[in-house]
Simulated scan of single mutants.
Amino acid sequence: MTLFGGLAGVAGAAAAVRGTSSRRISPYDLLLMTAGTHKLARLMSKDAITSPLRMPFTRYRETGGPGEVMEDVRSEGSLRHAIGELVSCPFCLAVWAATAFSIGFLFAPRFTRVAASALTAIAGADYLQLLYAQLQQSAEGTS
Rank of each mutant, 00 (worst) to 15 (best):
T50A: 03
A94V: 00
V73Q: 03
H81N: 12
I49L: 08
H38Y: 02
R80K: 06
T99W: 13
T37A: 02
C89F: 01
I83H: 01
I83D: 01
R74N: 11
E68P: 07
R74C: 09
F91N: 11
R54P: 02
A97Y: 05
P52E: 05
T63S: 10
Y60C: 09
H38A: 09
V73I: 05
M55Y: 15
R74K: 15
G36K: 01
A100V: 14
A82C: 13
A98Y: 15
G77Y: 10
A100T: 04
G65E: 10
F57T: 02
L86C: 10
F57C: 13
G36H: 00
E68Q: 12
R59F: 14
E68L: 01
I83A: 06
G65T: 07
G36E: 06
P90K: 07
T63A: 00
R61E: 11
T99Q: 14
L40E: 01
S78W: 13
R80W: 10
E62T: 13
T58I: 04
D47V: 00
G67W: 05
E71D: 11
F91T: 13
A48Q: 11
P90S: 04
D47S: 09
A82V: 02
A82G: 14
K46P: 03
P52C: 05
A94R: 01
R74H: 06
G84P: 08
F57V: 01
S78P: 13
G84V: 00
L93G: 10
R61V: 14
T99C: 15
S51F: 11
L53G: 08
D47A: 12
L40I: 10
A48R: 05
M44R: 08
P56I: 12
Y60D: 12
G84Q: 07
R59A: 12
C89A: 13
T37G: 11
G64W: 01
G67V: 04
A48P: 03
S75K: 15
F57S: 11
E68H: 03
A94D: 10
A98G: 13
R42W: 12
T99M: 15
D72W: 11
R54Q: 10
E76N: 12
P56Y: 04
S45I: 03
P56K: 14
L40K: 12
L93K: 08
A97S: 09
V95L: 15
E71I: 06
T58R: 09
E62M: 13
D72A: 05
K39Y: 02
R54V: 07
A48K: 07
K39M: 03
F57I: 04
L40T: 02
E71A: 07
I83E: 01
K39G: 06
